[in-house]
Nucleic acid binder design. Sequence first.
DNA 1: CTTCTGACTGAAA
DNA 2: GTTTCAGCCAGAA
Length: 118
Amino acid sequence: MSLPRNPTEKQRNFFQEVHEVVRLVPTGRVTTYGAIAHYLGARHGARMVGWAMMAAHTADAYVPAHRVVNRNGLLTGRQHYTSPTAMQEALEAEGIRVEEDQVVDFKRLFWDPATELE
DNA sequence: CTTCTGACTGAAA
DNA sequence: GTTTCAGCCAGAA
């Protein structure tokens, strides 16, 4: 799997939708790929959200991708960072404790856009 | 056209 | 608690 070298207009919109939601995540809180997919209408699978997150690295605006984890609270995207510990350090800098690549008290820190934004 | 893969998820065993 | 499986959409070979 690889990124499109020349993103089309449609792809750009898709990335913007996902990135916009991620930017809404408050500091010190986290959300999941599935929650974002559900908020966007579940028209695409959670995999597509993860795919869009990969593009966050090359996005124009900053995207706090470290606040997006999988449903288990695991930092599955850490391998895509410049360093394998960058994601965890970014979370800890916001007061989120991470142990064994997993967000501590994930259930309490979880921020669901579909619920919080209503 | 088919096939495979992926920063995923939910159900089933 | 675990492992396994089948959907899921987009893109590349």
